[in-house]
Amino acid sequence: MVPVFWAQALAGGVCIGGAALLLMFFSGRVAGIAGIINNLLPPVAADWQWRALFVIGLIAGPWLVAPLLGHNPIGLPAVNLPELAVAGLLVGYGTTISHGCTSSHGVCGLSMLSLRSLVATCTFVAAGVVSMFVVHHLLGW
């Protein structure tokens, strides 16, 4: 695994924040990835076109960075297929009923000083820390 230098991580964060800011500034939308993807599922939202193009850009983005870094920034999945399937279900279901993921609650919501987003962010980070400890240290998956 190639470590990420802190200034590079900071620059990455500025790109993510910049993307969220531009989307709000031009289109008036919160850049919540879970919500953007969610509304592409049936019943498909009327404004699905920008959402589909956002996801296409999201998938293409890392490939523009790869030549710059000199290595592929996309890492291997960290766990086996059954665990990935369970995790995927939890992430999809959880972000849908709580109306947000890391980007919507953790970046956009916190920037709007939303108490709901603060509570959600603290909850998913705490749950993530506990889950990581139980799954990877205690169970050894």
Binding site: Y93, G94, S98
Partner: peptide, 19 residues
């Protein structure tokens, strides 16, 4: 909100992927 964020966090801690 609380249950969804907790379930999301559990999945995040298993795989290291958010959406």
């Amino acid at each position: 909100l609380l249950a969804g964020a907790a379930l999301f966090g559990i999945g995040w801690g298993i795989a290291g992927y958010c959406p």
